[in-house]
Design a protein around this nucleic acid. Structure first.
Lengths: 220, 220
DNA sequence: CGGCTATTTGATGGTAGTCAAGTACCGTGG
DNA sequence: CCACGGTACTTGACTACCATCAAATAGCCG
């Protein structure tokens, strides 16, 4: 399975070891809009995306959602859950028709114990996640909505190219604001000829200028 | 060294293994207000607090700081750095006279590779950090300053008891707001007879009611 | 006592969240 | 093919919260 070879979580493993994982894995399909898992559900498996895109969000009791990862091929959906097993307030939703590869939690833990390089990879990814979350906290404090949207767009552009197939609500969940504010900010960027947007789709017209305005990027 | 026995990072190790770490470790003192490390400094050691309190903050290029950890005895200062070695935008400052125990990065990594349970502990702590950072993001979006302050006070109270020796500026860095807003919010809480405050010190008068208002807590 | 830091309080303005009404687009089913 | 329902987008008005600036007071340490 050369999906595993692509996966950041299994980087550095030999083909033999990858084969061992492949033998334990099973895959499942989800249709666009379906939930891959729900908040408050105990975690029973380690999962990576095989095909399509999955949106991973943290949910507050009051119903607000904040997306912190758009996972594509090879990216893991929940790194902490498989280790702790505890339920967490995160949800994962298929943005397209999606295939997800999973490994049961006990098998995964045993494997990780025998091959520490997996855990080293996990630490590296979690480190990125911590840094990214902290960077977003600072942005929430000192950056205005338009700046945050710029950062989101640039980050998405770097990862997925153009055009970006996201609705304004999805961008709002990424930027930590409301749909209306995103729409207003997009109006501004459109007038500056930085982007063009249609229903459910944003086109980056001037990546260079976008970059010069926005500076650092997030990690999505 | 029974400091190591207390440390969450080395939980589950045998005395023999702890002794091995103790032999590699060296300690250093810092006076109140001194920096233990600066942002943008490459990370050369794994460090835990031995005596006193250390404030760990993330810093933005524009100078805003946000504290995400008040580390006490046995708590590690920088978990990601020792693995990646890369500099990060975090600073650590001694809140009191402090003793810090350090292990050089190469030795630490070798030890971690030979004793995976250390890395499992690291993953657990990092998982907490990710969850906490994400919870704070949601709070920044939907909670007002007074609510955030309540959460900060309750969290600190749970960890350190009363009275809490923190200035309003320090509380502001924890709650993600300005000193003035904290002061105003504290005025409100004081009028509600929930707290009492003097210069550099806050006393929690009614923990039960505080708890009932604030609900979930952070992780500091 | 003098200087420094922490606290207090007031006034002001701006950002963005909320509510609301209306328009454009798309897929579906008659 | 067209009508229709639902979703996404757009825009306006209003308001609340809070950051900012500013000035004054109080506590602590040498």
């Amino acid at each position: 399975m050369d999906l595993l070879r692509d996966s950041i979580a299994f980087r550095g493993l030999s083909d033999l070891q990858l084969q061992e994982i492949a033998d334990m894995a099973f895959s499942k399909r989800f249709r666009k809009g379906e939930s891959v898992f729900y908040p408050h559900e105990p975690c029973e498996a380690f999962s990576i995306v095989s095909e399509g895109l999955v949106k991973v969000s943290i949910c507050s009791p009051s119903g607000i959602k904040m997306t912190y990862l758009i996972a594509g091929r090879g990216e893991p959906l929940n790194l902490v859950g498989p280790f702790s097993g505890a339920p967490r307030f995160i949800s994962a939703e298929a943005l397209e028709n999606v295939k997800v590869l999973s490994i049961g939690r006990p098998e995964f833990l045993l494997f990780a114990k025998r091959h520490p390089s997996v855990i080293f990879n996990v630490v590296a990814i979690l480190g990125h996640a911590v840094d990214s979350a902290n960077a977003r906290l600072l942005d929430m404090m000192e950056k205005r909505v338009e700046q945050r949207l710029l950062k989101v767009l640039l980050t998405l552009y770097r990862k997925f190219g153009t055009p970006l197939k996201f609705t304004s609500s999805e961008l709002a969940e990424l930027a930590g604001t409301t749909t209306e504010s995103i729409l207003r900010a997009m109006g501004g960027l459109r007038r500056m000829r930085l982007i063009d947007s249609r229903r459910g789709q944003v086109e980056v017209l001037d990546p260079v200028r976008l970059e010069s305005i926005s500076q650092e990027t997030l990690w999505v």
